[in-house]
């Protein structure tokens, strides 16, 4: 008998729930795109999907391969360029920044630049792109990434995109006027940030995933005392993912 859903599919379904109907969402490439499209096709048909390369509120008939893909243009309200989009973001008009990254630490700081010494790194990532801008300037940030020990260090090797920085007051001290990460969604569970300590805690774990497994894949002590089981996805959501949004099996 085929499995009901994969953890990666559940991750995307759960991520899509972060978007409320009508919200303006700034979406990064890859999994955030799939989650954004799913939200638009299900509970949030009026969410406004914005891509940094220049498009606002496109209809997204097909999954784009890039945030500058021609697929982002169809049915859009406006189609301009980076300056326009990022300036709206800086002006505080965007509700959610939806991003991934190479590493995330316990304060939700993201690294998408390099592992090891910056000048001669062990691993070079593609760089910030618009991620740092989203992290600095959206009203809130949702992070979606694979849950692995090397991706969840106590401290990121290079802080590309600021989360809560070094804890309470960190963002204000840096001069950031708003925002900060609210949720980290992985293929094992959902993490949130404590309102007073700004540290990541486990909010829910996926059915069949043990808290122990999450601890083993997290490079810092994570509070799991508040965690419950994540709600299972609906069959319609999985069908949409498989048949319409990501039909190539990229989430298997």
């Amino acid at each position: 008998m085929p499995e009901e859903y994969t953890l990666k599919e559940l991750m995307v379904v759960r991520a899509s729930k972060e978007i409320k109907d009508g919200e303006k969402v700034f979406i990064g490439t890859g999994l955030p795109m799939i989650a954004g499209m799913l939200a638009k096709y299900t509970h949030a048909p009026n969410c406004v999907i914005i891509f940094e390369a220049g498009t606002v509120d496109s209809k997204l008939l097909d999954l784009p391969a890039s945030v500058g893909d021609p697929r982002c243009v169809y049915g859009a309200s406006t189609c301009t360029g980076l300056f326009d989009i990022f300036s709206m973001l800086q002006d505080g008009k965007i509700d959610i920044g939806f991003l991934g990254g190479g590493q995330v630490d316990k304060y939700g700081n993201l690294n998408s630049t390099a592992i090891g010494e910056y000048r001669c790194p062990e691993v070079r990532f593609p760089g910030s792109g618009g991620a740092c801008d989203m992290a600095c300037l959206s009203k809130r940030v949702v992070i979606i990434m694979k849950h692995e020990l090397r991706r969840f260090p106590a401290e990121v090797d290079y802080l590309t995109s600021p989360g809560w920085m070094d804890g309470p007051g960190g963002r204000e001290k840096a001069g950031l006027v708003r925002g900060g990460p609210t949720t980290v969604i992985t293929d094992l569970g959902v993490m949130k940030f404590d309102p007073s300590s700004k540290e990541m805690y486990l909010d829910s774990y996926y059915p069949g995933v043990s808290i122990e497994k999450i601890r083993e894949n997290t490079g810092f002590d994570i509070d799991c005392s508040r965690a419950g089981e994540t709600e299972k996805p609906h069959i319609e959501e999985i069908a949409l993912l498989r048949n319409k949004i990501a039909p190539k099996g990229s989430l298997r």
């Binding site: 300056f83 990022f86 910030s128 618009g130 801008d133 001069g175 950031l176 006027v177």
Partner: peptide, 26 residues
């Protein structure tokens, strides 16, 4: 960042020596 890089070109296009921004802080 992408915005930072874009603003650098914008300053160049405007005949200004620099552009202020609220991004990349931290």
């Amino acid at each position: 960042s992408n915005y930072g890089a874009t603003l650098r070109f914008l300053a160049g296009a405007m005949g200004l020596p620099f552009m202020p921004a609220k991004t990349m802080l931290g």
